[in-house]
Design a protein around this nucleic acid. Structure first.
Length: 205
DNA sequence: AGTGCGATTGACT
DNA sequence: GTCAATCGCACTA
């Protein structure tokens, strides 16, 4: 447990969450994801996000509401969890107002609490690799479709909390692993943070 | 009812 | 660096 972060783990206030998807993606950098498991509390600082905005051809809500993506249409601050490539779960935070389908993908965490639990869930030891990537962080926190639709603004199995310390410089760049609308700079990350996934070149502050 | 495809990862050359 | 695994789901018919 590092000094300076929110030991109470009080949930973020929904009223304070930016409604706009891109603004929310930036806002969530430096915040804490808290997961309550039978074995104990697991948490990590968000160091990388991606915005999937309204009208975004790369977004799952692009063609309207379906059984899979309905949580994207919830009021901002709810979890949208889906299975990618049949192998990895992805954690997103719904954005905008109820009925608007958009969200923010959480791509990487800096592990804070419950590191031994994460190491067990991931089957590896190395701190840097525990939650460096969207599928990895979901595995480390035991997140799956059962958490789809969870209110992240109240304590429960999964929620978002504030960090005591100010985040460092935030970089912005291209989203990873998409083919449509790939030219938009909708990825945000903490500069000089070793827990960020992917390449940092061709990005700007 | 059948088909194609990922907002990835880990193993391997 | 390359590449297969794996499956729920959206799309076509």
């Amino acid at each position: 447990m590092k000094p300076g972060h929110n030991k109470d783990g009080l949930p973020l206030s929904r009223a304070r969450l930016p409604v706009d998807t891109t603004a929310l993606a930036r806002y969530l950098i430096g915040k804490i994801v808290v997961r309550k498991l039978p074995e104990g509390i697991v948490s990590g600082r968000i160091v990388e996000t991606e915005a999937y905005i309204v009208g975004d051809a790369a977004g799952h809500a692009y063609r309207g509401m379906t059984p899979r993506n309905r949580a994207l249409f919830l009021e901002r601050g709810h979890a949208y969890v889906y299975l990618a490539y049949g192998t990895s779960y992805m954690l997103n935070v719904s954005s905008e107002t109820a009925g608007i389908g958009a969200g923010v993908l959480i791509r990487a965490l800096e592990p804070l609490e419950g590191i031994p639990i994460m190491q067990h869930n991931r089957g590896i030891e190395r701190l840097r690799d525990l939650a460096r990537g969207p599928g990895k962080l979901a595995a480390a926190l035991k997140i799956d479709r059962r958490l789809d639709g969870t209110d992240l603004c109240q304590k429960g199995p999964l929620w978002l909390a504030r960090d005591g310390q100010k985040p460092g410089d935030i970089g912005q760049g291209l989203r990873i692993g998409i083919s449509k609308d790939a030219e938009r700079p909708l990825r945000f990350f903490l500069y000089d943070n070793p827990f960020v996934s992917g390449l940092r070149s061709l990005n700007s502050r």
